[in-house]
Design a protein around this nucleic acid. Structure first.
Lengths: 321, 321
DNA sequence: CTGAAAGCGCTTACAG
DNA sequence: CTGAAAGCGCTTACAG
């Protein structure tokens, strides 16, 4: 593999000049530029990016940390990040953690070693405190009580409360909620909003009406049967993702339970499946979030100050409430 | 940031010894090893990976090329690749191409520049011929008529034919097929199998019964209406992916068309959605394919010979045929 | 077991 | 506009 020195020799110039040509530096005579380009052609030169990275001190690559790529929410987000990254010529490295703290720390160590210039955490198990022990540009896709990170998120508190109010306005009082993870950053906020809402309408909080660890369609299916077995049944369930809602609704239909008459369902995401099934849901623009997350991280990498952005959400009424 | 030289000075040894300690080279006296480790601790040493890459000549990273990460099929495959890569401590770089040849070529150029040690093409627009013009370890997730690549795939020809035979055995003669892309590597093979099957049962081939560019659930919905408008309607459609099938079936249900009585549907993928909807489908183990693709590419990178692997598929009977 | 030194292939002040 | 030289931070024969 020819290197910059070979090109210089062949073209009869210095390596500096070759480097200038490669980097489109203006101060090169037309004649030498031509000779260099020609030599590069003849010797089939390709630049060794590792040398560039070592010399420049950065890698033109960012890392994306998420539990799994095979859930639509994360895949959407990743697609948005990837689109934006491609436009900027930045590479993307995926760290699939399955919420394993060790794997999250591995990603952080890669940032420290300069394998990547920055990190986007789409969702994580590590606490913000632990995260703060690491240096380097980090962007969180959730709001944080700690200073030090740029963040982008939707106002989960408000969105969740809006959803509850919508259900209440539709006449529901017996409302259950279904979350992805107990420990999730947003679960806490949501449960708080849930308790508040219940209190306002004079309902008592029931621990068992907060369902957790629901992520897939099959979880939704299981959720139906759970609902079905309860002696006192909620008339509405507020579900934190479209996959679960879809499973729930399909199973309800299969079991001849009428939605929304016997059971109303409000969801989160607004993926294609919710459109097809007519699920009322709260659109959270995962792809757009990915795009903006990338842009914000880039700014951080370039030394701009920390910022926090809040994205809009939108309740989409369809036919399940 | 402390470097290897700083550590050497602090510990009173040579950089060679420091390097040996870092790389767990055996020939280091316990005493020096200890001093080095201590110095690393004190100075908060982190290795600069770019220097390692430059020196060693590889990057410990592979690239994954796919049209989009937000389709379940590709997301599944990526999840499989990512799991396997994480186990081997190899990094993953995503190239999302949207079947844009320029972006595929960009990925290839990155391989040439050593940004990545190898490339997995999950699906591509570029012809095998064009691909052959590039060097470096490449793995294709489809069979290829060219020598030079390791490949992993399912036997699309056989699988497609089996599906058709199954429909025929169920009494269908008026069968349409629905593919993702006209130019896809497998479309050609499948259309061939389709024609063969039709000929054997004495049916004439109709160009308009080969539907193309169907990828999403909404495409499936549109497909239903297309079917509904035909004056002569096929009694069965063989659809190349679960997303499309799901959209098709849900719309059929919504329009009170009975599946499979009025319209039978056989699908490909066996994603969760097909299970929930009871779609008869052909399981193609996308995640497993991703895992094995990674393992095979690694072998290539380590200099082992080219190989081709064929994965099993399995027709899963449910209730749509 | 240990170290001096060359090498990986670029970039970039600095001096002209 | 041009080039000699130092620097980025590691690894690795080679000689001891």
């Amino acid at each position: 593999m020819a290197n910059i020195k070979d090109i210089a020799d062949k073209a009869g110039v210095s390596v500096t000049t070759v480097s200038r040509v490669i980097n489109n530096h203006p101060y090169v005579s037309e004649e030498k530029r031509k000779r260099v380009l020609e030599a590069m052609e003849v010797l089939e030169y390709t630049r060794n990016v590792h040398a560039v990275h070592l010399s420049k001190g950065f890698s033109n690559m960012i890392g994306v940390v998420m539990p799994t790529i095979s859930l639509p929410y994360f895949a959407e987000m990743m697609a948005g990040i990837a689109d934006a990254a491609a436009e900027s010529g930045i590479h993307l490295s995926l760290f699939q953690t399955n919420y394993d703290v060790k794997k999250e720390i591995f990603a952080l160590s890669q940032l420290k070693q300069r394998q990547v210039d920055g990190l986007i955490f789409c969702s994580k198990a590590l606490s913000d405190d632990k995260l703060k022990e690491w240096e380097g540009p980090i962007l969180l896709c959730q709001n944080s009580n700690k200073e030090g990170f740029s963040t982008i998120s939707i106002p989960h508190q408000a969105a969740f409360r809006d959803g509850l109010d919508y259900l209440i306005a539709k006449g529901h009082k017996k409302i259950a909620i279904c979350l992805a993870r107990k420990k999730g950053m947003n679960s806490h906020i949501r449960i708080k909003a849930y308790k508040d809402a219940l209190e306002e309408i004079g309902e008592t909080f029931k621990e068992e009406w907060v369902i957790e660890k629901a992520i897939t369609m099959n979880d939704g299916k299981a959720l139906f049967h759970k609902w079905n077995r309860w002696r006192e049944r909620p008339t509405a369930i507020f579900v934190a993702n479209d996959q679960v809602s879809a499973g729930l609704i399909l199973e309800a239909r299969a079991q001849q339970v009428s939605v929304p008459d016997e059971l109303a369902i409000l969801s989160f995401d607004n993926h294609e499946i919710s459109q097809l099934l007519g699920i009322s849901t709260i659109d959270i623009q995962a792809k757009e979030m990915g795009k903006q997350a990338f842009a914000m991280l880039e700014k951080r990498i370039q030394g701009q100050p920390i910022e926090s952005k809040v994205l809009d959400y939108r309740l989409i009424e369809r036919s399940t409430v």
